[in-house]
Design a protein around this nucleic acid. Structure first.
Lengths: 350, 350
DNA sequence: TTGAAAGCGCTAACAA
DNA sequence: TTGTTAGCGCTTTCAA
């Protein structure tokens, strides 16, 4: 476990105490922002500390107080661009409040999740941002009982005792479908995310309700499931496009799936959006740089991160259990009117 | 800083010691894997510890030993997909060896870098993986003197006392250019990365040497600089394409730039690769899912992460200062023969 | 408002 | 091979 850091002992609270002619306890209180420190002493101690270049030792602090200034984020795989945005958002917001951040790639492996979570408890880490846990509800409850506080990000967590910050996924699904319907599409397919993930179900519900609202009926044939990956999207597209009559538009459960679907369509010699319209969900950074740029439902990752951290730094009383963020339609280049001029209603957005 | 974790004190080394009828020191030694523990006692202690559900407290350990089982990765922005791959690679490899990982987004802001680095020292963290520091060489040296060990990943760090794990960027540049030349291109432009980043200079050198090797001379007019972003790539493309005669191929310093350039070309009504060939560098996950898929120079992020961690866990004597990884050409859809049949040599790859 | 003193859970000489 | 004994640097009662 590494060779020790150099002995070169930094100034401690004792050094400061001696130099400021107060007790170590007072120095400690000062740095803890404790109210019961006389302004005069406060200033003196601060000055001395600055002069000595004193910096509190978080390890000692955490050990002694059984609190931690570290938080953690658990997620399946940081390579998912939307998760990366989330990490960035959470990490920045947390840093603003003096927290450091650990990162844990769980691979959706419950054993790994356990491993990380146990380690966090040993470190006195209390707050963990979780992007989709695969742990059983019982297991999560046990961790909550052990003192962990979960903030589910984007994907809900399997326990009512957790905070959750997510987008209005159902609404997003509905927005997507409505956009396609407005363009004149009638045979609208959906590549749903894995049903084990709550947001897959929500977006799918939005799809169903969006169709229903327009008086269209849902054709089970036009819904397939996929992992959240380009690969999955490509495969799903292949199976969807064999339907007869083929769908003229596809609502993909996330941008990765959409990107995979677009790629597969192109490979098939099928033009997007001329032959088939495709809309995604997330609005990852890359979306606007594809060709054509991806029409998608935008989730605000920055806001999610900020809200999530806000939940933690807010006084306990002011906390809500759940925050739902609005989503918005980003019309770009992968959606247009259906190929055979079946655009009858054409009520365009203004 | 969070309310305390529940009091519910876990078993400590003392509990184990008492139950196993040994001294705490022996338990400590056992868990430290110290050789001087009799096999018999070792087993007994292990058994008792397991029974009591004892788990060592890393905080106490770190505080007392002035070592840490935490490492950190500093990078400009995790949203860069190549960096995300790197983080994943490093984090997994580190986890394999019992290390946890902190993540710090530096925004290329020296103040922020300082802030994080200071925090790491307070935490006794020793090893920091750095993807491009903007700190001055003097500053880095000071941190090294303070005990930090830097492992520069991908982008070198401004100090000879650091380990570095990087790709053979010069060779990558040469490979890219040679590929374009083999296709018959003669007017080959380069969108270089920011010159403050060492790898930008290396890739550019590869470009220059690749041209020279083919007896082509470098036209300063055909090289522009850009940040590593789609936006930058798009802008660079716009300025490049105004040259007369216009380049028939572009070697972009990374995939993000390439993606931006492709998007800009398309927007311009310029077909890729028919009108202009574009090749990137990195081979990010998304590259193969663009349409057309991106021809690029592949860097192996996984290998980089593993090698970097390997450096740390290897005995000090076995460490090299610098590891250079090979790159490879991935021919995909964004490169082809030049538009006006100027492919004279046509020596195709077999 | 301040201080004294006893830990937090572990490591590391030093002795035995 | 094992135990004793000080710490590591800070927090937190409890008293003053």
């Amino acid at each position: 476990m590494a060779t020790p850091m150099p002995r070169q002992t930094r100034a401690t609270i004792y050094d400061v105490a001696r130099a400021a002619k107060v007790s170590p306890a007072t120095v400690s209180r000062m740095f803890a922002g404790h109210p019961s420190v006389a302004p005069a002493t406060r200033d003196r101690v601060a000055a001395v500390a600055a002069e000595l270049g004193y910096r509190p030792n978080p390890l000692a602090r955490n050990l002694s107080s059984r609190k931690s200034d570290m938080m953690a984020i658990l997620l399946p795989d940081i390579r998912n661009p939307f998760f990366a945005e989330l990490v960035k958002a959470v990490q920045s917001a947390a840093g603003q409040h003096g927290y450091s951040m650990m990162i844990c790639n769980t691979e959706e492996d419950p054993e790994l999740e356990r491993h990380y979570l146990d380690g966090l408890i040993s470190r006195q880490v209390k707050y963990v941002f979780a992007v989709g846990l695969t742990l059983s509800r019982r297991a999560v409850e046990a961790y909550v009982a052990a003192g962990l506080v979960f903030i589910a990000l984007d994907r809900g967590v399997n326990d009512p005792g957790c905070y959750v910050v997510e987008s209005d996924n159902r609404m997003g699904g509905e927005l997507a479908v409505r956009h396609l319907i407005d363009l004149g599409h009638r045979r609208i397919a959906h590549i749903a995310g894995p049903p084990r993930v709550a947001l897959s179900r929500d977006r799918r519900r939005g799809y169903v309700e969006g169709l229903a609202a327009a008086g269209l009926k849902v054709n089970g044939d036009l819904v397939v499931e996929s992992e959240f990956s380009e690969q999955g999207g490509a495969e799903a597209y292949a199976s969807l496009i064999r339907r007869r009559p083929a769908p003229t538009a596809i609502f993909a459960a996330d941008d990765l799936i959409a990107i995979g679907a677009v790629a597969a369509a192109r490979r098939d010699g099928c033009a997007v959006p001329e032959d088939v319209s495709i809309i995604g969900f997330d609005d990852v950074l890359m979306a606007r740089y594809m060709s054509p740029p991806l029409t998608t439902i935008r989730q605000n990752a920055m806001a999610m991160g900020e809200q999530a951290v806000g939940l933690i730094v807010a006084p306990e009383t002011a906390r809500q259990r759940k925050i739902q963020l609005p989503v918005s339609l980003q019309v770009r280049g992968t959606t247009s009117v259906p190929p055979n001029g079946s655009a009858t209603r054409g009520r365009e957005k203004t």
